[in-house]
Design a binder for these strands. Structure first.
Lengths: 365, 365
DNA sequence: TTGTATGCGTTATCAA
DNA sequence: TTGATAACGCATACAA
């Protein structure tokens, strides 16, 4: 019977230069295509069929002579794995202003992803229209990866939740406990802040004031918690005035107020790190305006890293957020989720940073 | 007759939640998978079968409710586009040392990619082993994307050439004329340097010295060419001594030599920008050591941007490499290649940067 | 206008 | 140890 012509795609694009396929390697080596695949992508040691040395040699030789390179698309399709991890930030991943960028995180993310054999897909977030402007399903694009890392403060909860419910591996960089079910990796601000407070107490400080913005982000409340825990551990009282809230430190954190505190016996201040560094900035300028010397009159500590534009000034006492390690930890967690494991290593420790802005309190008359 | 079990792969992993496929969308919408494909990836206006508005609506609704996203690998395999542009750098894209990063380029790359509707795949390149350590197929992974942008100095030529020969769209960021057939986008150092020289001449300088490292990278030789062209355009002589070569400016660029030049009538120096900023650094320290004032005694210009660690010093006269624009131009070119167009816009202009380090030469007795 | 039937290049399974 | 063969998810030629 005549094999009648059947519908379907045209056999060959014909026009373009096409690279050698496993089939051609197989023909040249005198084996089947499947054998070529077995030789060229062996299972992790031991598993799978064993290929005779002679066959292996012939296949490798044929592949080399033909300049065979595997097609990543086909490979990933067949393996049901893209080896792609998404990175989604709600601002541009690469803002023009380097200061606000996630660069330090990305350092770790890239390194760890490479180590684990993943490539990265950068999803251009809500930023500049384009690829996936806004819209409810903007987040849907990330599904093209095997899993996705989310960075940034303002996370659209419903969409994220939807992804998680669908079993899509998601990790949030920065604490997100409140989003139930969303895996996250964050810095241990509680422990780091407590450490700073305890060290101040050990220096002899009895009254310490926390300067923070009026924000209920975990990054902020965690520091407050650590602050209180530190006071308690050091056996210090925690009167209500020890927590200073302000959305506009510049205005509320006046020299007068500072001086009043000093008169009340306050000898140390700790300020949280924020995007803008407003709390720390406000504290610094108020101290200067009040004519107080640091660390002679007051000790100052920054709960985080100083803003980039203060790089020329001496680095204050405080702690460093290990951003690259955080990024790396997030990738590890994400990779575990992708692999179906249930790993969980949320908190990454910060490291205490000694500095010239703290010292023993001045002996009071 | 019993349909006997035939060899092949197990139909479905069954256990894990898997991303929705066109088949599921089709089922939900009550149409065939092919119809879903037609609706979801329509041919450029007019071509192809026309789908009824009603069907289209149902399909889109189903796709949205399932959170459907096309599988990039499958798309590529089926000889179509997946709206992914690759970025491959031969060093880590995000090095720990921010100074050497491609960040400024990426700013433009991301913005333009988003504007054009592409997402970016960061191929974790030669960095730390991992994904594709070395090997010929390390570069091959980029074929997952529709095209790829290459950044960095040390380009493995054979692999790159191979990609180009296979018709894979490739653009190199940074001049790569010598790699025949490789499209590239670069900054116009020749023009920018000439501009600086001419402006110096207009200020009244008659003898100008170029400080550059002994490097034959286009970035370096282009500046030299621009330097010579500038001299010629200004009608100035170009004796051999006007070009200073040194791999170690710190040692060769001595205060004595500088003073000698000054005595010979040299009133201006231009230094190339390099990775390390060695030329500029060497020039600066030699000038200071020689006790020369800038710009009173000598005018200094930097052919590029100052190193990050000199950020606190006044920004010298020179020109700025519009890195974001370069990145954007590269993406535009790449997108054009992907679309099958033959666009070509290799050179991006630099912008002159006035500064306090240049002025009219001191009137000589 | 929509459904059917391939084919893309691999990997994975089972039979030989 | 190797070879058929199916399936991965999508796009497309052709039939209905």
């Amino acid at each position: 019977m005549e094999p009648r012509k059947r519908p379907g795609r045209t056999p060959a694009p014909a026009g373009r230069t096409s690279r050698p396929r496993q089939a051609e390697v197989a023909r040249l080596a005198g084996v089947s295509q499947a054998t070529v695949s077995l030789v060229l992508s062996p299972k992790p040691d031991g598993k799978g069929p064993v290929i005779s040395e002679e066959t292996r040699r012939r296949v490798l030789e044929a592949a080399r002579s033909l300049g065979y390179v595997p097609d990543p698309a086909a490979r990933r399709l067949a393996a049901a794995r893209n080896n792609l991890l998404g990175v989604f930030s709600f601002t541009a991943t690469f803002p023009t202003d380097v200061q606000h960028s996630y660069y330090p995180f990305l350092v770790g993310v890239e390194r760890e992803a490479a180590a684990l054999g993943y490539d990265l897909v950068l999803f251009t977030g809500s930023s500049t229209g384009g690829a996936g402007a806004a819209g409810p399903d903007a987040l849907s694009r990330v599904r093209l990866a095997d899993g996705c890392l989310f960075i940034g403060r303002h996370t659209p909860r419903p969409e994220l939740k939807r992804l998680v419910e669908d079993g899509f591996p998601v990790v949030h960089l920065g604490r997100r406990e409140e989003l139930e079910g969303v895996a996250w990796v964050g810095a241990d601000y509680v422990e780091a802040t407590r450490d700073v407070v305890v060290r101040l107490a050990e220096l002899g400080h009895r009254r310490i004031v926390l300067v923070r913005e009026d924000d209920d982000a975990p990054a902020s409340t965690d520091r407050q918690r650590g602050f209180l825990e530190g006071l308690e551990e050091a056996g210090l009282p925690s009167g209500p005035t020890t927590v200073f809230r302000s959305a506009d430190p510049q205005r509320e954190l006046t020299p007068e107020r500072l001086r009043a505190w000093a008169d009340e016996g306050v000898t140390a201040f700790v300020a949280e790190e924020t995007d803008t560094g407003a709390a720390w900035r406000g504290l610094l300028s108020a101290v200067r305006a009040a004519g107080l010397d640091c660390p002679e009159d007051v000790s100052l500590a920054l709960l985080g890293s100083p803003p980039a534009d203060l790089a020329s000034e001496p680095v204050p006492t405080g702690f460093d957020i290990p951003r690259p390690q955080l990024g790396a930890a997030a990738v590890r967690l994400l990779a575990a989720l992708v692999a179906g494991e249930e790993a969980s290593e949320p908190l990454v420790g910060c490291v205490f940073r000694p500095g010239p802005t703290t010292g023993p309190p001045r002996a009071r008359p």
